[in-house]
Design a protein around this nucleic acid. Sequence first.
DNA 1: TCGTGATCCGCACCGTGTAC
DNA 2: GTACACGGTGCGGATCACGA
Length: 361
Amino acid sequence: MLENNAENKAVFSRIGKRWRESIDKVKEYDVREDEQAIDTEFIPSFLFSLEYQKAQELKRRLLEKYKGVLLEEAIQGERLKTGEGSCYHIENQEKININIINPEKAKEKILSNLKLIYGIGRATEYFLKKEGYRTIEDLRQHPRFGLESIRFLQTINDNRSEVINWIGRWFPKSHPLMLCASGLWKKEDFIILDIETMGFFSRPIILLGVAQVSANHISTHQYFLENIKEEVAALRGFLSHINKNNVFLTFNGRTFDIPYIEERLAYYRMKGELGNPHFDILHFSRRAWRKELPNCRLTTLEKYLFGIEREDDVPSALVPEFYETYLRSKNIGPLIPIIEHNQQDLITLANIFSRLHKEWQ
DNA sequence: TCGTGATCCGCACCGTGTAC
DNA sequence: GTACACGGTGCGGATCACGA
């Protein structure tokens, strides 16, 4: 037994070492004191050349416009100081009107879907409803489905997070019932999240944006890295908004933002629990509007739903290059649209969430 | 009561498309 | 690179209806 433990320990130690080594290969992102270029593995061919040229023109314009301007002069914020360094913290508040289904109505709607009970499909639900079983509560006395119904009723009363998993077992994550389940939380519980990074994997995060909605306002907090050394402080700032009662609201965050942040936390060996329930607006939006739209990018949705057309948008593939230009030139110009659009993304996400609730009620 | 066929349900797989 | 949705397909098991 002891021998096995020692063996296991050695195996885990080897795996851990290899894992650290694979991440540490990204040495080019360690901050260099000289002005050497930083290899971002940026691939221009990823973009249409017209889009690329437009972005280069934008960059030139911004470099000219912000020559000699300090970050604090262009974007109001303050330095967030933590025990592990500092980063630039930008806070804003805007009026917003977010309407989502209330908890009572959400519960009522969920309980009227008998297909949440194992063994009930479309046909069985039809016949059960014909027999007078309108809700899962009605099924409590049913000889076959009673036990499972009681179990679900306990879940919906005691454990909202588990309801999400339960619905996810029988319905796609983009299903209107899943959106309806988000109404089990108060709008103050939602953490809207969007990050800007230096690449797809194992690259530093350069901007962490978090937003929270209150009665009729949205507060946005952005943690920006003036240099890559500040990533730990930015992560610390982000974590200060999260508690176990929060629910994440993201655009493709299930695949990108959350795993990315988790990977960065692991890299710095920081503790942070991000297993909160998660509603990914991308999948709901696709289900709702993909037939009307050429694609479901956030900017496309913004234009279609709210008539907002962004000026000076930096394609996400070019964000690393823009940031790299800032690091080399110490000119904050290329950062400005990145920071502004990140903030706009957070607000748009909240608005799309509200619109989806309106459309699917 | 038993056997048979129909129906329903759950699940797995595949290819395609799409987002960051 | 990765994960997910979606539509299609097919398989196996459970359940039900029906006739003998």
